[in-house]
Amino acid sequence: MMFAEHSLDFAEGIYLAHRVRCGKQTFKKGTVLTNEDISVMREDGMSTVLGARLETDEIPEDRAAVLIAEMVAGKGVEMHTAKTGRCNLYSTHRGIAVIDTAMIDKINLASEAIAVATVRPWTVVQAGDSVASIKIIPFSISARLITDLAADLAAGVRPAVPLSVAPFVHHRVALLMTDSELVQDNVIDRTVDATRQRLAAVGSTLDSVLVCHHETAQIKSALLQAVSTGCDLLLVSGASVTKDRCDVIPKAMSEIGGVIHHFGMPVEPGNMLLMGELNRIPVLCIPGCARSARENGLDWILRRMAAKLPVTPKDIMLMGVGGLIDRKRREDHDEPSSHA
């Protein structure tokens, strides 16, 4: 690309670098100059114009933006018409943004001429929400750059999908709460209300609520009763927060054939979450902070589960960067362990 001050004698086909006003007529940045445009400029007293002439092996900015957008967009994502080197991507439905950060980084690192900006990974989006913007910085880029980048993204065991939106799938959820003399009278009602709100946000419903005493035998019976309801997910809120894999609730699960997959998460609030499985039903022993509707680590797990996305122990342990949700707390005013 030849970016320079061009004589109007040789300006046909030039991409205008900046907006130019000639009398009552305005030429926008990026306008490809025609002989008629040049005549208007001459009449206004101009002799040169600042702009860019594309080489034969270069792709204009709008077309290049579309080609990059096609590489980025996966399921649940649609692109709009490119203008001034920018092509925006939008969600086609409500769900969660699934982003391959390494692939987006690879595109951006390919050249300073390419800029791909996305929402943060795992952001909840609505239909029509903007999820990414692709901008070509100059007026054109090399066709070879586009070809090599496409081949690079397609290489590997499976084709890369840098950005998609996984739709929420309705889940029937059961909530089991344990009670004791230490639990305040309104805690159970508050927990139910917060859970309904939390599930509604990811397109699911609280279909059954069970309460039992915080004692191993009763918990075992209640767990089996809960999974027998036909729920897709079981949430367990303890009268006291689980502090160990051998604590009352996980112990009860294990004694009736349940499996503990992971305990703890680097998200605050939400550290004390436990993830397991009973009779092939996912079980989340929720932290005390989940008694409130305020965002916490449980929400991060539910969003993925509600979109039918796998959640592994490694996934949880990699949530630490950005995992400090509540930054206002002070150590000397830390909340009780029941809220952890």
Results as ranks from 00 to 15, higher is better:
Ser7Met: 10
Leu8Ile: 12
Phe10His: 15
Tyr15Trp: 06
Arg19Val: 11
Arg21Pro: 00
Gly23Ser: 05
Lys24Gln: 12
Thr31Pro: 04
Val32Trp: 07
Leu33Val: 12
Asn35Lys: 15
Ser39Gly: 15
Ser39Pro: 08
Val40Asp: 08
Val49Phe: 06
Gly51Ala: 12
Glu55Val: 07
Asp57Trp: 10
Ile59Phe: 01
Arg63Cys: 03
Ala65Trp: 00
Glu70Trp: 01
Val72Pro: 05
Lys75His: 14
Gly76Trp: 10
Glu78Tyr: 13
Glu78Gly: 13
Gly85Val: 05
His93Trp: 08
Thr101Tyr: 02
Thr101Lys: 10
Ala102His: 08
Ile104Ser: 00
Val116Lys: 03
Ala117Tyr: 14
Thr118Tyr: 02
Arg120Gln: 13
Val125Asn: 00
Val125Ser: 01
Val125Thr: 10
Gln126Ala: 14
Gln126Lys: 13
Ala127Tyr: 01
Lys135Ser: 13
Ser142Ala: 06
Ser142Asp: 11
Ile146Tyr: 13
Asp148His: 12
Leu149Glu: 09
Asp152Arg: 15
Ala154Gln: 13
Gly156Val: 08
Val157Trp: 09
Pro162Val: 09
Val165Lys: 05
Ala166Glu: 10
Pro167Tyr: 13
Val169Gly: 00
Val169Met: 04
His170Phe: 10
His170Lys: 14
Arg172Asp: 11
Ala174Thr: 10
Leu176Met: 02
Leu176Thr: 02
Met177Pro: 04
Leu182Phe: 09
Val183Trp: 03
Val183Met: 12
Gln184Phe: 06
Asn186Gln: 14
Asn186Cys: 06
Val192Pro: 03
Thr195Met: 02
Thr195His: 04
Thr195Leu: 03
Arg196Pro: 00
Leu199Met: 05
Ala201His: 07
Thr205Gln: 08
Leu206Trp: 01
Ser208Leu: 11
His213Ala: 13
His214Pro: 03
Ile219Gln: 05
Ala226Gln: 07
Thr229Gly: 04
Cys231Trp: 12
Cys231Phe: 11
Ala239Ser: 14
Ala239Trp: 08
Ala239Gly: 09
Val241Asp: 03
Thr242Met: 00
Asp244Trp: 05
Asp247Pro: 04
Asp247Tyr: 06
Pro250Thr: 06
Lys251His: 13
Glu255Lys: 08
Ile256Asn: 04
Ile256Val: 15
Gly257Met: 08
Gly258Pro: 01
Val259Phe: 06
His262Gln: 06
Glu268Ala: 12
Glu268Gly: 04
Gly270Asn: 03
Gly270Ile: 00
Glu277His: 07
Leu278His: 11
Arg280Pro: 08
Pro282Cys: 00
Cys285Asp: 07
Ala290Phe: 02
Ala293His: 13
Gly297Pro: 00
Leu298Ser: 10
Asp299Ser: 02
Ile301Pro: 00
Arg303Asp: 00
Arg304Leu: 01
Lys308Phe: 02
Val311Pro: 09
Val311Met: 09
Pro313Cys: 05
Asp315Asn: 14
Gly322Tyr: 11
Gly322Lys: 12
Gly323Leu: 00
Asp326Gln: 11
His333Thr: 10
Pro336Val: 07
